[in-house]
Design a protein around this nucleic acid. Structure first.
Lengths: 245, 245
DNA sequence: CGCCTTCTTGAATATTATCAAAGAACGTGG
DNA sequence: CCACGTTCTTTGATAATATTCAAGAAGGCG
């Protein structure tokens, strides 16, 4: 193995201890990393379904458009994330993938999953768990979109981002960089860019958060969590039932 | 095996040919059916995570409440569905489960899944695919909730139900029974019962559908599909990569 | 028949969208 | 290092969509 650690190994190590066998397996699956510049369309819905990606660097998002141009961003991807899991069940990609800033991705073929599933029960269980955990996260988001006001949606949004960033960065404080513009946030939360602006201002006036360029600080995180009944699904994941290494 | 065909087998057979071994394996999951009367709380969010269920008969739904009483129904369950998949990754149940009408469920322990996963790669792949397909369905729903009007939401809702009912009932026409009341539909679509009533009336006035008690008929299904850019994820599933029987 | 739940309808209200324009921020090239 | 163009954000006025509240109608069930 090279001196540079595999993206996938780095990511999955956050959840369980990987055996040497697992590490080697993952290393062989991974293709060489590839860079994309900012605001680049990496794949489109309807494309024949080939690769999954692990994010090595930078933020991206998956989205779908309606025929009349309305857009829904369905997932924001950070370093360490696996992109494309749900599409495994489909013949074609169901979403478009776009970089927010310059990114580095490690593609690996669908077939790699087969290898994992046949040769490492422990890794299989982890992959499945991550997919199911994501489903719970979608369900939480559905609740947000279905029943929460703009104020609550934005609050949930920043709390969720922070919780996710804390998976890979243990000593993350209450401040983080948010490289999305307000139109993108609007497309994620089902609102308009104008209303995102107004809502952020209100949250700031209420002293819940402060902004400085792309930096966001949650000054009253606990209060925000209570406001939106926030549950951290990233911490809560159950790996206790996994087969041994 | 009994003369009565298992609805799980019926459901799964839609996707792949099941071997006798697979059928027997699945039959064990449905060994201990249990009845619940209508409007019964079957389990609650936060419960220690025990059983999954196969629906043998009747409709149910999974939902979550906000602290102030707002409710979001996140999934409607039909005969043949497996309930509780996403919770496998969590230590506790994340949603509440409630019957709409009298139902028959077959509870089975998480450990039964292990049996499947160790003894039938083909069934395992199918289970995983269904979980991932569900995730795609949630993503579609997110798009509906984030970017669509009440008219479009209701349209998508009835189209989705019909597509699902057609999995287990091939000769389903454009008419089906909808045992949910308008408050429940509202809680599913993130609207109010009043507005559901008004929206159904408008759809009826526009000649898109007709109602007779609980019976709904989609008189212009193709037009509705175009209106909401509907994709049938239940038909589209990719089973080509599965290991052999 | 009478009671209960659900559905319908209308009026008033709230929330968010749309439109338009001005102000900030930022990178680029002169 | 400044001027310019571009994109992003802010703000205000107006409009659309959905909610709330309230009351009456319809339907099922004992």
């Amino acid at each position: 193995m090279s001196g540079q650690p595999s993206c996938l190994v780095q990511n999955l190590s956050h959840y369980i201890d990987l055996t040497d066998h697992d590490r080697e397996l993952l290393a062989t699956l991974e293709r060489s990393p590839r860079d994309y510049s900012e605001a680049t369309e990496i794949h489109s819905g309807g494309d024949r379904n080939r690769d999954l990606y692990v994010v090595k660097q930078g933020w991206l998002f998956s989205y779908t458009d309606l025929p009349d141009g309305r857009r829904q961003i369905v997932k924001i991807h950070h370093p360490g994330d696996v992109i494309g899991f749900p599409d495994i069940a489909m013949k074609h990609m169901t979403t478009n993938l776009r970089s927010v800033e310059p990114v580095t991705l490690c593609p690996f073929p669908k077939s790699a999953l087969e290898t994992i599933f046949t040769s490492s029960p422990r890794l299989s269980a982890l992959m499945l768990s991550i997919a199911l955990r994501d489903q719970v996260v979608f369900i939480d988001l559905l609740r947000v979109m279905g029943r929460m006001s703009a104020m609550e949606r934005v609050s949930h949004f920043v709390l969720d981002l922070l919780a996710r960033l804390r998976i890979t960065n243990k000593d993350m404080t209450d401040t983080f960089r948010l490289p999305l513009n307000q139109s993108q946030i609007a497309d994620y939360l089902g609102l308009t860019n104008v209303y995102i602006s107004k809502t952020f201002k209100r949250l700031q006036d209420d002293g819940m958060l402060s902004r400085d360029g792309q930096q966001i600080t949650l000054t009253r995180e606990e209060e925000l969590k209570e406001l939106v009944d926030f549950e951290d699904r990233y911490i809560e994941m159950d790996t206790s039932w996994f087969p041994g290494g």
